[in-house]
């Protein structure tokens, strides 16, 4: 479960409201797609829920932990794939995964099982012993995806996870996201790929100028906006007139 209660984040001394009184609840076992135009506040919202940024007001609950108060417990709850790879370029892929496993205190057997399952799935078996800086963008993205679930978190947060992935890996990722939810866990991801969101998500949230302007199942949103696709819904709600 993820819950945002009156979350606000401002910049430039309050002149810019990146997130404006956001209230949102996502139940466990759901894939939640977070949509919005560029600069709408998606990444800021994700950074607040992962503890990177402090909100000016409001609370974010991850399961039963408040990210501002029970920080360490809350951070154990999620695995996070950021939108850009600013990582440890001189570490090898396996060293990076080992580091994460140590930090999340994952046992030997569990980490081995995880790698045995995910490395072949994302076709990284051969490259995993190489330094990360020799990786392509897609390979780095796949490495982050594998690392983010090494501790089997209750919540999986992904910021633009499809960017840079080849079609096969994208397919695997979508499958994994679905499997994750089917096991009772929560997936929260932001994307601009509306087709994927429409087919994959149980619930959609659309944000504009820091405000949540729509929330619901894709079908319900399409009905309420009398649209035939999620793309139409998105354009109706986010493209400003004039």
């Amino acid at each position: 479960m993820i819950r945002f209660e009156n979350v606000t984040k401002t910049y430039s001394g309050g002149a810019t409201r990146a997130v404006d009184n956001l209230n949102l609840e996502i139940e466990s076992g759901k894939v939640f797609g977070f949509l919005g135009p560029n600069g709408a506040g998606k990444t800021t919202t994700i950074k607040i829920m992962t503890g990177i940024l402090q909100p000016d007001a409001g609370t974010v609950w991850l399961e039963h932990a408040d990210i501002a108060k029970d920080t360490i417990e809350a951070k154990r709850m999620f695995g996070f794939v950021p939108d850009s790879f600013e990582m440890f370029e001189r570490l090898t892929g396996i060293d990076y995964l080992r580091f994460l496993a140590d930090v999340y205190q994952v046992g030997e057997a569990e980490r081995k099982a995880h790698l045995d399952q995910y490395l072949p799935l994302f076709d990284l078996e051969k490259a995993i012993g190489q330094q990360i800086r020799s990786f392509s963008h897609g390979m780095k993205q796949k490495l982050q995806i594998i690392g983010s679930t090494i501790h089997q978190p209750r919540i999986w947060i992904l910021d633009e996870p499809m960017v840079g992935l080849d079609p096969a890996s994208m397919h695997v990722l979508k499958q994994k996201m679905r499997d994750y939810c089917d096991s009772g866990k929560t997936v929260f991801f932001s994307t601009h790929v509306l087709d994927v969101a429409e087919r994959l998500c149980d619930e959609i949230g659309i944000i504009r100028d820091g405000k949540l302007i729509a929330q619901g199942a894709p079908d319900a949103l399409m009905r309420s906006e009398s649209a035939t696709s999620l793309e139409d819904v998105f354009l109706n709600l986010t493209v400003k007139e004039g």
Binding site: D102, Q105, G129, Q130
Partner: peptide
């Protein structure tokens, strides 16, 4: 850097 390093034992 692409020369592969052995993936050693996963010690905690």
């Amino acid at each position: 850097n692409a020369s592969k390093r052995r993936v050693g034992k996963q010690r905690e």
